[in-house]
């Protein structure tokens, strides 16, 4: 038993970290302009490095590693607030692979095309109403539900209307689903819904840690009353709470990935628990991070607000805290 990454796993983490630190510093979101992000430019490079195929079995055209490596990668994607379009590529390639659509799979793994995400508007809309994230120039749209997962061509959606995105680094549209999927797999074929929740949990862990580190770094350099604000306990303890919550979320994300790798019947329980703990943490850490920054944290010039908004996107995706809390009560007691 060992929840820490092995040397090989750490090497993967370090490679991704280095890549994102250089190619995707969070400052890019501010520099890009008011709306959107430049992350689609990263996809071909990330594809070439094999990062979309980590958890895909090698006999299905993947790298053949486990859910643990995928979890670690998505933690880094969250830390750098990489566009959630990356879920579309990784999970989309998985759908194609399991559906035997090898050409499409390889195209997705190479990162040459964009895949948007469709998310039910839940109680806010009718059953066929969706939000589309990052789908504007996408060839495909990913839809994940408890029953399975599918790739739709963008024109399977009608009445597409662009709306202002609260997370302005993402492009958001409203749409109605009116067409059929091109490629679909059922929950029996692959546990892709659990995987999506588990990976979103990992992503939210990264968002939480990013907010924590931003707050800690700022409290070391911002001085008031003649000392760094981090010397004041009311700030120090807020930072400590962020660290405690992040640790809980990271441990559960690691546990959930390993349980998934074992093929345990507790997989949905732990994946759901991971998403709950991590999304709650991401929102709270981001909120605390704003407070630690004072008025600067309230501006668009600081990066802080991106963490808060992305945390809310992570929460809403594939069922918010409210829905996940309902679901988790329906699972049997885990081992």
């Amino acid at each position: 038993m060992d929840l820490l990454p092995s040397d090989d796993q750490q090497q993967i983490v370090d490679t991704i970290k280095d890549f994102l630190r250089n190619e995707a510093p969070v400052d890019r979101l501010r520099e890009f302009g008011a709306i959107g992000n430049p992350d689609a430019l990263l996809w071909p490079q990330l594809g070439e490095l094999g990062f979309f195929a980590l958890g895909l079995p090698d006999d299905r055209g993947g790298v053949g590693l486990s859910a643990a490596e995928e979890m670690l990668a998505f933690q880094q994607f969250g830390y750098h607030l990489v566009s959630p379009g990356i879920f579309g590529l990784v999970l989309g390639a998985r759908i194609a692979a399991f559906a035997g659509e090898d050409a499409l799979r390889d195209e997705l793994l190479a990162g040459g095309i964009k895949v948007g995400l469709a998310n039910s508007r839940g109680a806010a809309g009718a059953a066929d109403e969706y939000h589309l994230f990052e789908a504007e120039e996408a060839a495909w749209v990913l839809l994940v539900s408890e029953e399975g997962a599918a790739l739709y061509p963008r024109d399977a959606f009608s009445e597409i209307v662009r709306v202002n995105s609260t997370d302005s680094a993402l492009v958001l549209e409203r749409a109605k689903l009116s067409g059929a999927p091109r490629v679909a797999i059922s929950a029996e074929t692959d546990n892709i819904h659990d995987r999506a929740l588990m990976l979103m949990g990992a992503y939210a862990v990264g968002v939480s840690e990013g907010a924590r580190d931003l707050a800690v770094d700022y409290s070391k350099i911002r001085e008031q009353f003649g000392k760094p604000i981090g010397a004041f306990q009311s700030i120090k303890h807020v930072c400590a709470d962020m660290a405690i919550r992040s640790e809980a979320a990271l441990c559960q994300a690691s546990f959930a990935a390993l349980v998934m790798d074992e093929g345990s019947p507790d997989t949905p329980f732990h994946a759901t628990a991971s998403k709950i703990v991590a999304c709650e943490t991401a929102v709270r850490n981001a909120a605390d991070c704003i407070q630690v920054h004072g008025a600067f944290g309230f501006t668009a010039e600081a990066n802080v607000h991106h963490y808060l908004k992305r945390a809310h996107v992570a929460d809403m995706m594939w069922g918010s805290l409210r829905e996940q809390r309902r679901r988790i009560l329906t699972f049997p007691t885990p081992a």
Partner: peptide
């Protein structure tokens, strides 16, 4: 969910 995380923390 939090109890699951607490156990994972001990493993960590």
């Amino acid at each position: 969910a939090d109890m699951a995380a607490a156990r994972a923390m001990t493993y960590m």
